[in-house]
Every structure is written in structure tokens, then in C-alpha cells.
């Protein structure tokens, strides 16, 4: 038998309107759940983007021993170049290094820097980039074994800390979401039970005149679907608007220096899939749970 979706959705909407407050509670519950899920998701997506961006920026600073002669340094540079997976090697002399430092610190420290420049104790260094940023650590270790190299510095520690922090954020977010999903399902299921209760006479008559169980179930499932969809649409719109605002006002200027935000269209596309997917899942599941026990013929 064909499923008359139009009729079932009409009935579902009627149900929602009939128990307005419970509908509101369920929609709000789904909405809050998905809002937190969505925000966590946006953070996670950007964190991912950020870590690959940061990793891409990673360089190895290899500092030469003060005792190394220029000839030995040149030989070492050639050795480094010959290693597999090296993208570029750049020599930075101690004089250049001092200028760079001066530039980073800014003009107000110029007098101090001038004093230091008379007695430059900075070592020469090589700045190395790996083809694959994930190999940075391994390459760094190889380089540090070279006889003219005193020590090396890579961004690994920074990245590790960053990742650990982002993992914690994500896990807390997910724990919240799991708890909230259970609450949301419970509320939806209760809303639908209320409808079933208020319509039990109708259901009784439907059964008597020979309605199939699916015909009776459908309106309650559409009710769940509608709660899920509305509950997803509201946080989706909110996050979209907020993210768009942030991208326009903040993304380019402030954080742009450290890492770029993900494009709005990419984030919202993923957000739409996940929020509506989870929302509909919660709704349908809530519907099935409440209908199952009540419709035993």
C-alpha cells in the first residue's frame, strides 16, 4: 500500500500543535543538544584545520656548534640537503639571526640590541622544512646526530600541547552531547506518548475499522521527525549566523595571523549533514520507542 505521507505529516503537525508545551520542551531539548554538538563540531573542524596549518608551518632550527668552521658548516648543509624528505634548507648566519631577533622584538629594544651586536653570541643556524610535516620530528633527530650540530628545535612540543588541549575540548563536548541526546530522546518519547494518550480513542477506532499498524504509527513518527527537524534547524541557523559573523569580523584579521578559519560554506555544509542527521535520528527513535509499547494490538 502506498504511504500517504501528506496525510501523515498533516496528522503529525496536528499532534504537535495539540500538546504545545511538550512540543516546545522537546524541540528546545533537541535544539540545545544540537547547539552544543554543532559548536563542538565547529571547534573540532577548525582545530583540525589549524593543526594541519600549524604543522605545515613547522620548521626545524638546527643550531651549529660555536666551534664549527664555515667549511664544516657548508659540508653539513650539503649533508642535510641529501637527506630524504627535505623540502628546503636555508642557512642563517649569526649576523642575520641577530637582525631577525631585532625585528621580532621591535624598535624599542634597539639600544639594547645594539649593545649585544658588539658581542654576538648567537650561533649560526640552518632552517629546514620537511616535505611531509609529520616527518619533522624524525628528520630533526637525524639532523641532531650530525657532528657540527649543537642542538635542534622543532615545533613538536607546541603542537603536542595544542593537540592535547583540543582533544580535551572535543571529549568534553562529546560527553555533553551524549548525555543530552538521551535526554532529548526521552522528552520526545514523552511528548509522543502524551499524543498517543490523548488520541487513544481515535487509535482504538482505527484498529477496529482495520487500519494497519503502520498507518497508525506514521503520524507519530512524522511527529518525531518534525521535532527533530525543527530542533536541528534552529541551532543550525544560529551557528551559521554566528560563524558567518565571526568569519567576517574576526577570521581575517585577528586569528588570521595565527591560523585561518575554515570557510563558512565548508563548515555549514558539514554542520547541516550532522545536525539534521542527528536531529532526525533522535526524533525517529523517540517516536519508535513511544509507539512500540502503546500499539500492541
Amino acid at each position: 500500500m502506498r504511504i500517504r505521507l501528506f496525510r501523515h505529516f498533516r496528522e503529525g503537525i496536528k499532534n504537535l500543535v495539540r500538546n504545545g508545551w511538550m512540543t516546545f520542551a522537546s524541540v528546545a531539548s533537541v535544539g540545545i543538544t544540537l547547539l552544543i554538538l554543532g559548536v563542538t563540531l565547529v571547534i573540532a573542524l577548525n582545530a583540525q584545520q589549524m593543526s594541519s596549518y600549524v604543522a605545515g608551518q613547522l620548521q626545524i632550527n638546527a643550531f651549529f656548534k660555536m666551534s664549527a668552521t664555515p667549511a664544516a658548516e657548508q659540508q653539513t648543509l650539503a649533508q642535510i640537503k641529501a637527506l630524504p624528505g627535505i623540502k628546503s634548507v636555508q642557512f642563517v648566519s649569526r649576523e642575520q639571526g641577530l637582525k631577525d631577533l631585532q625585528k621580532t622584538l621591535g624598535a624599542q629594544y634597539n639600544t639594547i640590541m645594539d649593545g649585544i651586536s658588539l658581542k654576538n653570541t648567537l650561533p649560526d643556524k640552518a632552517v629546514i622544512e620537511a616535505v611531509d610535516p609529520r616527518q619533522t620530528v624524525q628528520i630533526g633527530e637525524e639532523i641532531s646526530q650530525l657532528p657540527t650540530i649543537d642542538h635542534i628545535q622543532d615545533g613538536q612540543q607546541f603542537v603536542d600541547k595544542l593537540f592535547r588541549f583540543l582533544d580535551v575540548v572535543r571529549n568534553i563536548g562529546l560527553a555533553f552531547v551524549v548525555g543530552l541526546i538521551v535526554t532529548a530522546m526521552f522528552l520526545i518519547s514523552n511528548t509522543i506518548k502524551l499524543t498517543i494518550f490523548s488520541r487513544r480513542r481515535e487509535i482504538e477506532i482505527m484498529k477496529l475499522v482495520g487500519a494497519t499498524n503502520w498507518f497508525i504509527r506514521w503520524p507519530f513518527l512524522t511527529e518525531g521527525v518534525l521535532i527533530g527537524a525543527i530542533g536541528a534547524a534552529i541551532p543550525f541557523a544560529a551557528i551559521w549566523a554566528a560563524y558567518h559573523w565571526m568569519y567576517v569580523h574576526v577570521g581575517g584579521a585577528f586569528l588570521g595571523l595565527v591560523f585561518p578559519l575554515m570557510a563558512v560554506s565548508v563548515v555549514t555544509a558539514k554542520l547541516a549533514w550532522i545536525l539534521f542527521g542527528v536531529g532526525l535520528f533522535i526524533g525517529v527513535w523517540g517516536g519508535i520507542m513511544s509507539v512500540r509499547r502503546f500499539l500492541r494490538v
Binding site: 480513542r201 481515535e202 482504538e204 477506532i205 484498529k207 477496529l208 475499522v209 482495520g210 487500519a211 494497519t212 499498524n213 494490538v297
Partner: peptide
């Protein structure tokens, strides 16, 4: 069961109208 019920009309003391 619905097929059986469709072959039967049932009338009650309390009418059972909506």
C-alpha cells in the same frame, strides 16, 4: 488482523464516535 477487521463492521453501545 486489519484484513479481518475490514471484513467485519462493529457497533457498540457507546457509539465510539470521534
Amino acid at each position: 488482523i486489519p484484513l479481518l477487521r475490514r471484513s467485519i463492521g462493529v457497533v457498540f453501545q457507546d457509539f465510539k464516535l470521534l
